[in-house]
Computed example of a mutant assay.
Amino acid sequence: MSPQPPNPTAPASTPASTAASSQATPPEPFPSGATLVPYNFPTQKLKLRQTQQDKTPLVLVACGSFSPITYLHLRMFEMASDFVRFNTEFEVCGGYLSPVSDAYKKVGLAPGHHRVNMCSRAVDQSSWLMVDPFETVKANQDGEPEYVPTAKVLRHFDYEINTVLGGIEAPDGTRKKARIALLAGADLVMSMGEPGLWSPADLQVILGSFGAFIIERSGTDIDEALGSLSQYESNIWVISQVIQNDISSTKVRLFLKKDLSVRYLIPDPVVEYIEENHLFHNEPNKGGRMSPAADANPGPSAS
């Protein structure tokens, strides 16, 4: 199994010409009925028809705790969208936030339905960002929350978009397979570069079959990590963070526990939701992080 740091980028960006590497269509990754509540894959903001014939459709997926979601999580998508537009042969057709399962058992992790609701409020005004609750409703055979490794999350999106929906329609009416890619912060690649933390099989799926767009962070040196991932360099795109932003969910929770204002650190609708539901105030620790042996669904930022 691969590692499990919290849900959370390669010096020079890699060639965009390799972006269209093929992905084998996987079988349905999750049996029907294996969820805590009825589930429907969200497609309301997914661009089902491209505007540029010569581009490869791209869907960005950020896995993370989002406890709570911050402006940095949202800015990551906008930075990636700009980067894709000017530096690659992709056309962004959608962006998804995928909050991690309650089975992750991370300190400060609010219940899944609250994290999904906060993310939904945060992206309500976005024309292209959506929240997929699948990880938070995935259940095991005993009806308990089940952790979903990052590799399986990406396969889930590939199945829903490319198998169920049949991909994205090009301007000429043909169907194209969408490229699914992980969107994350520099700490993700750094964790992937640590020997023994991630399983080779999962790395092959995440970076070999799908790929990742990584946001650089001040204070992080990922050169060494990227060196150990050199076999995947054609599937890793590094995005510079021109305006530094170190807001994290951890810092937001600390402010809330101290009864300090978090306005302008996170979206107002999220602030209101936290206040309405009395989240993160004097909450007890929920136990330690999962063992590094279990795949950590690293996401956009250390949270």
Rank of each mutant, 00 (worst) to 15 (best):
A212M: 15
M76I: 07
N117T: 12
F90C: 09
E89M: 12
E89T: 11
E160S: 14
Q125G: 03
R85W: 11
D158S: 03
W128A: 14
F83E: 03
L129P: 03
I69R: 05
A201K: 00
C119I: 09
S199C: 11
A80H: 06
Y71I: 08
M130V: 01
K105I: 12
G95I: 13
L72W: 04
V116F: 15
F90K: 09
M190G: 14
Q141I: 13
L207N: 07
F90W: 10
R175G: 05
F86S: 14
L154F: 01
L154N: 02
R175D: 00
T88K: 10
M79P: 01
D132L: 02
V107A: 11
A186E: 13
P149S: 00
T150Y: 12
S127F: 08
M130Q: 05
D82F: 11
D124G: 15
F134P: 00
H73V: 01
D172K: 01
N140M: 04
S191G: 15
C119F: 10
V148A: 05
H114F: 13
M190Y: 14
L72Q: 02
S199Y: 01
T174N: 12
Y159H: 06
T88R: 06
L74Q: 07
L109T: 09
G173R: 07
I69W: 06
D202T: 11
D142F: 12
V205Q: 04
P68R: 06
M118K: 03
L188I: 12
T136H: 01
G193T: 11
Q125T: 00
G167K: 07
T136R: 02
L165W: 04
H113T: 13
C93Y: 06
C93T: 02
S199T: 08
G211W: 05
M130H: 00
K106D: 01
V137Q: 10
V116K: 15
V131S: 06
I161T: 07
M118W: 05
A184M: 12
E91W: 11
E146G: 07
N140L: 01
V189M: 14
Q125L: 10
D187V: 12
V131Y: 10
T163N: 04
Y96E: 00
R155E: 05
M130D: 07
N140K: 07
V123H: 04
V116N: 15
Y159L: 03
Y104F: 09
I168W: 04
D102V: 08
H156M: 06
S120M: 13
T88C: 10
K106G: 10
I161Y: 09
N140I: 00
S191E: 14
A80F: 09
S209G: 12
V153G: 02
S120P: 07
P68Q: 02
N117M: 15
E194H: 15
D142R: 14
F86C: 14
G196S: 14
D102S: 12
Y96D: 05
A178M: 08
A170Y: 00
G112P: 10
